[in-house]
Amino acid sequence: MSRGANFILGAAISALLVTAGIVGTFWTPFNPLQLDMVNRLSPPSAAHWLGADEFGRDILSRLMAGASTSLGIAAVTVAIAVSIGTVVGLVAGSLRGRVDRLIMVLTDALLAFPGILLALALIVITGAGRNGIVIALSLAYAPGVIRVVRSAVLSVREKEYIEASRVIGNSELYTMLAHILPNCLAPISVFATSMFGWVILAESALSFLGLGVPPPAPTWGNMLAASQPYFENALWLSLAPGACISLALLGTNLLGDALRDHLDPRMAMA
């Protein structure tokens, strides 16, 4: 697929989901929290396009209402994790020595736990709920970013143009921001977009364990989690949020690739 097509498809998918999220904040076809036992587990129909869940709530409405929560949590988490990871990774890779060793020992210690386990431990401190999830997940995913950024910095800083920058008389800080950081953006952007997907899934896992956004407020993750007992006779319950999560992953990954290529002048000609 050409780069242009990548960008257009990624942008279209992302725009669709973001629009759904924005509209869902103000208006949904049905009240997403309204119980309706008559329509319990009803399959997709003219009235309920995507069917209704185990409490008869309209799934389309819940998806729309959940979009802003799920996408919002993922976006903020990725932003925080990438910011922390980039700053710390840049410092570790640029300063080397004792600072680097200390940072890497801590990072490796954190990476020894699966991200979700770390998030669980952190939620014990931060408490469940929207903010708790964001803080826990961003701290859980930051060590990975630190590793990626640090190794990118280590390879870039050996290039002669970094030395050339020093010879010109530029300070270390300026060299770091003007020459090292821009040349590390490609791996960072790829990592950030794939992390977007992990965070949505992690949020659903936390919700599944009852540590996510508390019910009845919908998120794609807790909808997916709640659909699990009905998997055999009401497949649409899990298909709808699952499809939304997949679409979000596809959209961000396509956008991420386009962004990486756009940021790299060498790709402009290819």
């Binding site: 290039k159 002669e160 143009y161 030395e163 050339a164 010879v167 008389g169 040349n183 790299d264 002048p265």
Partner: peptide
């Protein structure tokens, strides 16, 4: 500021961005 250098490898001495 008064002492400058020209490096050996013109492919890696210029910032590609």
């Amino acid at each position: 500021l008064a002492c400058q250098m020209v490096f050996q490898d013109p492919y890696s001495s210029l910032d590609p961005r």
